[in-house]
Nucleic acid binder design. Structure first.
Length: 114
DNA sequence: GTATTGACTTCAT
DNA sequence: AATGAAGCCAATA
């Protein structure tokens, strides 16, 4: 399996995150069938083609922290996009107890059909 | 080949 | 709660 395919799977998986919810890099890696590859997920989100419409901003660290430093250009953009869908971002962090995406696995894996 | 890098995660302070 | 070390692993160089 080549890189493009891995990236495609990651992007597809990220597209399944519903508006108003967030997921962690590691979680997306697992769901995409690439366990242990959290860092690859981050990398691939930097490569999303602009015409593809992947909600990269719904992906955060396992701690709920945004991946970018507080106050950075990117973190501000991400915060804005999340707040547009009523996700509360406080101090560069999202409350996972409230906003973490918890998909039905059987349904999700079927809908992905790798 | 080896070495470094990183939109990460976990565990121990 | 915050910080840092160690672990992680594919992609690059």
């Amino acid at each position: 399996m080549n890189n493009d395919q891995k990236y495609q799977r990651i992007w597809q998986t990220v597209q399944k995150i519903p508006a108003g919810k967030v997921a962690s890099y590691g979680q997306i890696a697992d769901l995409a069938g690439l366990p242990g590859r959290a860092r690859l997920v981050g990398k691939s989100l930097g490569y999303v083609p602009k015409e593809l419409l992947v909600p990269w901003y719904r992906v955060l660290r396992s701690s709920g922290q945004l991946a970018f430093p507080k106050g950075s250009e990117q973190s501000q953009l991400q915060t804005g996009l999340l707040q547009q869908e009523d996700v509360v971002v406080l101090n560069n962090r999202v409350r996972l107890r409230e906003f973490l995406w918890q998909p039905d696995l059987a349904e999700l894996l079927f809908s992905l059909e790798f």
